[in-house]
Design a binder for these strands. Sequence first.
DNA 1: GCCAGATGAGACATTCATGTCTCATATTTG
DNA 2: CAAATATGAGACATGAATGTCTCATCTGGC
Lengths: 206, 206
Amino acid sequence: MSHLAYTRLMATDRDTVLEAAVGVLSRRPTAHLDEIARAAGISRATLHRLFPGRDALIRDVGRLGLQRFAAALDTAAVEEGDARTALRRLVDAAVPDAMLCAFLAGENQLYDDDEINDLWEVQIDRLHALFLRGQREGVFRIELSAAWLSEAFFDLVAGIGWAIQDGRLAPRDAAFSLAELFLGGALRRDPTPSNPQHLGPETGNR
Amino acid sequence: MSHLAYTRLMATDRDTVLEAAVGVLSRRPTAHLDEIARAAGISRATLHRLFPGRDALIRDVGRLGLQRFAAALDTAAVEEGDARTALRRLVDAAVPDAMLCAFLAGENQLYDDDEINDLWEVQIDRLHALFLRGQREGVFRIELSAAWLSEAFFDLVAGIGWAIQDGRLAPRDAAFSLAELFLGGALRRDPTPSNPQHLGPETGNR
DNA sequence: GCCAGATGAGACATTCATGTCTCATATTTG
DNA sequence: CAAATATGAGACATGAATGTCTCATCTGGC
């Protein structure tokens, strides 16, 4: 029991360090371990005790990001319901980890680790499938390829992460800004206020 | 005259190297000078003759990207005409340099060079002004802040660059995919085929 | 064909981040 | 309070990338 509690404490500690690391690495991939350790509030020695080396740290950051994104896809249940509301759920689930996604977008496929690459491919495929399904359902536009929709969505999630981190976007507005822009685009829908249609069902919890 | 021709030759040569460099650096910011030199088809010695050092190279890549983006804003004449067509012109002008923009999006504000930062700020302000004007004209949605629209637009341009570089998007489709997604969003406009409206005036040169 | 400038290949020194170590201190456990 | 463990601070070695050099080769102009 005490052993379990101990390992769990270490695990969350590792994740805390990884989240601090991503805050630095997403903007400056060449940051020194000194900076990362300082950002995490620990010494370089402890950082080395938690992670054998720099590449191990980077690898674990990527793994954490992919795990979080996979968890977001799970909690959003993107395989169920109609595609539009599924995507809205995904937005809500993914925005809290937008910074991790921003890191992933940058370090896209520079990993030689098979586990990481497989994990990445699986999640992208799930996203791709969501858009394909939406296109078949008549929800998403078919002029834009599902591959491009997946890519653009992930780019915008990353953009959300950067914007929040740099203080250019309030976290409160993040999910709304992402969902509205991606789903509805930048153009006004109806210049005449005769058609009060909305882009999707309002969940009412804003 | 021959002197001018000589310096111009060198300048374009520098730009050629910079464009090769961005192809490597946009994906792997930690790439060695060896790789960059090989990507540019020159030796490391010549690379050092063209650029005093690594940071000078990075700085010039950033400067080139900003110059190209500024030129795109100029040729698109974003300050003239209605905002929607101005943005379409900007898309067409910016897409060829999307990879440079992708690099800029990554190395956002890590420069301590005042000239670079000023140049960056000016261009972002121009983009911001375009969206503000469009919102006042009733073209762009006012629920999304002009700052977010600027940021998201740039993120998508960067995404275009990455997708093209990695072969996930055909260069032919780039401008269309970017403009349609950003302006109109991912959702189908009219599920019923009764209203054949389009998102903007077709220029007819596709 | 000759000369000047440019380029490539490689050796060399240097700098700096990394990795490893020790020891003192702080914190927790019993 | 005492022991055990975790942490921080710093020194030190190592290795890799960078910066600088020389020399051979190539190209272009005269």
